[in-house]
Design a protein around this nucleic acid. Structure first.
Lengths: 260, 260
DNA sequence: TGTGGTGCACTGGTCTGACCAGTTGTTTTG
DNA sequence: CAAAACAACTGGTCAGACCAGTGCACCACA
C-alpha cells in the first residue's frame, strides 16, 4: 500500500535527461558560454530518443540554463536567471507602518475586485463563490467557539476572497492581489491569526463576509465595493488594536526583565 | 516586445502552442482543476504534430500551469503560485488581451495615487512633481514635432507619474505600481511608443498631464483621481485603435464553442 | 592574390506512425 | 455478487524521415 497523498512515479526520461545535463553543467564539464554537443550526439551518449532529449532540453531552456538557436546549437547560458526576493520584505522588517500601507492598497484592489465580480461574474462564478462562502460559514457554525482551527479558517477565508477576485475576470488583478496577500500572510500571519482568535473580531468578519457575499451574488457592484472597503478598513483597525495591546504587553515584559 | 539584444526569430511551434493554451486558460475556457483534451485531440485541433504539442505542454508544465499524469491526462493547476518566482509573469507576456486587464488595474492604482498625492502631498512633493512636469512639458514644447526622441519622452513621462505616486507616501503603492509599469513596458513598449508618435495622441497626453499636474498641485483629491482615471482609460482606447489598425484578428479563431 | 559565390555538412525544428505503460470502466467468469 | 479479464482510452517513448537555418571549405572569377 502506498502512503496516501504521496505517489510513487517512475522518473520520466526527459526529467532525468535534464537532471543529468544540469549536473554536468554544475560539475563544470559544460561551462557557461560553451556549445553543448549536438542533439544527435547527446542522444547516443545518454541513450535516449531525440524526442525525450528535446523535451529534456526544453526543461533546461525554460529554466534559462541553456539557449538554443537553429543551425547553431545549444549553449550554456552566461547569466544565472535573476532571483526575485521581494524588496518589500525588507520594508516590513524596518517599518511596521508598512502593514497599513499594504492594507490600504489591498482595500483598493479588493474593492475593485468585488465591484467587478458583482458586475461581470457569470453564473458559474457565483456558484463557486457561494460554495466557498458556505464552506467557510459552515465551518464557523459547526466548530465550537473554542475548538476552531485558526489555520483552516484562514484558508477558507482566503479561498472565499480569491473566488471573488477570480470572478472579476482580470488575471492581472488576481495576480497582484495574490502577491500582496502572500506578502501580508508571510510577514504578519501571527497578527492575522489573532483576528480569528478574538470572538469580537470573528463575529465582525462573519457579518462582513455575509454582506459581501450577498452584494456580489445579487449583482450590486457599488455596494460590493463599499462592503469590501469597510471589511479591509475594519481589519486594519483590529490589527491596530492588537498591535497596541501587544505593545503594552511588551512594555510590561520589559519592565519585568529589568528586575530579574 | 523582445528584450533588447534579442534577435527576432520566427516563433517556434511549441511556443505558439503554449501561448495558445495559456490564452485559453486565461479566457476561462479551461478552468483550474479541469482536465484538458487529450494530446491526440489537441494535435488535431491545433494542427501540430504530437512532438511539438508535447514540447508545448512541457513549457506549461515547467511553469506550473498544468499537471500531467500518465494514463490520466493533463489538468490546469489549482494553485496559482507554487513557484518561488512570479509564474504568472510568464503567463502575461505575449497576450494582448492581458494588456487591457493590466491597464484596468493600473488605472485603479494611478487614480488612488493621484488622489493621495493631492491630499497628502507635502510642499516638497509638489516642487518635485512640478519639476518633473516642467521637464516633460519643456521638452515637448522645444522639440519639433518630427524630431522628438520618443524614448526620452517616455522616460520623462514615467518620471512625472512616479513623482506623483511617491507623493502618496505609500511605499506599497509605489512598489506595486512600479512593478506593473515594468511589466507593461517590457511587454508592449513598442505599442506604447506609437502613442508618442501620433500627434493626436501626443496632444491628448499633454492636455491630460497638464490637468493632472494642476489638480495635484492645487490639492484637489477627487479631481486628481478622476483625471488620472480618464488619462489611463484614454491610453487604453488609443492602444485599442492602434491594435485594430495594425493587424491580425485571427487570434479570435479559437474560442469557447469549438472546445465543447 | 584576393574575393565573392556556391555547395555541402553540419545544426536544430517538425512530422509521422508505431509501440509501451498506466488508468478506468465494462464485461466476463468463478 | 464479487473478482478477474478485457477493452479503450490516457500519456511516455522511440525510430526515422525531411525541412530550415548556419557556417565553413572550396573554387571560379576579377
Amino acid at each position: 500500500m502506498l502512503p496516501p497523498g504521496e505517489r510513487i512515479v517512475t522518473a520520466r526520461t526527459p526529467d532525468t535527461v535534464a537532471a543529468q545535463l544540469e549536473q554536468l553543467i554544475l560539475d563544470g564539464v559544460f561551462r557557461p558560454g560553451q556549445l553543448l554537443p549536438s542533439e544527435r550526439r547527446l542522444c547516443d551518449r545518454l541513450d535516449v530518443s531525440r524526442s525525450s532529449l528535446r523535451e529534456g532540453l526544453r526543461i533546461l531552456r525554460s529554466k534559462g540554463i541553456i539557449e538554443t538557436r537553429q543551425g547553431r546549437g545549444s549553449v550554456v547560458a552566461q547569466l544565472v536567471p535573476p532571483r526575485d526576493d521581494n524588496p518589500l520584505m525588507h520594508l516590513f522588517r524596518d517599518h511596521p507602518r508598512t502593514l497599513y500601507d499594504l492594507l490600504e492598497v489591498r482595500a483598493l484592489l479588493e474593492g475593485e475586485s468585488a465591484r467587478l465580480a458583482a458586475s461581470r461574474g457569470t453564473p458559474t462564478d457565483r456558484v463557486l463563490i457561494t460554495r466557498r462562502y458556505d464552506e467557510m460559514a459552515d465551518y464557523v457554525a459547526k466548530a465550537g467557539a473554542d475548538s476552531i482551527d485558526v489555520e483552516r479558517l484562514a484558508r477558507l477565508d482566503h479561498a472565499f476572497h480569491l473566488a471573488i477576485c477570480q470572478a472579476s475576470h482580470n488575471p492581472v488583478l488576481v495576480h497582484t492581489l495574490q502577491s500582496l496577500t502572500d506578502l501580508l500572510l508571510s510577514s504578519v500571519f501571527a497578527s492575522v491569526k489573532h483576528l480569528y482568535h478574538r470572538p469580537r473580531s470573528r463575529e465582525m468578519l462573519n457579518r462582513q463576509h455575509a454582506r459581501l457575499h450577498r452584494a456580489v451574488i445579487e449583482g450590486k457592484p457599488e455596494l460590493a465595493r463599499r462592503v469590501a472597503l469597510e471589511h479591509l478598513s475594519s481589519i486594519g483597525e483590529s490589527l491596530r488594536e492588537i498591535d497596541a495591546e501587544d505593545r503594552r504587553l511588551e512594555r510590561s515584559a520589559m519592565r519585568l526583565e529589568e528586575w530579574e
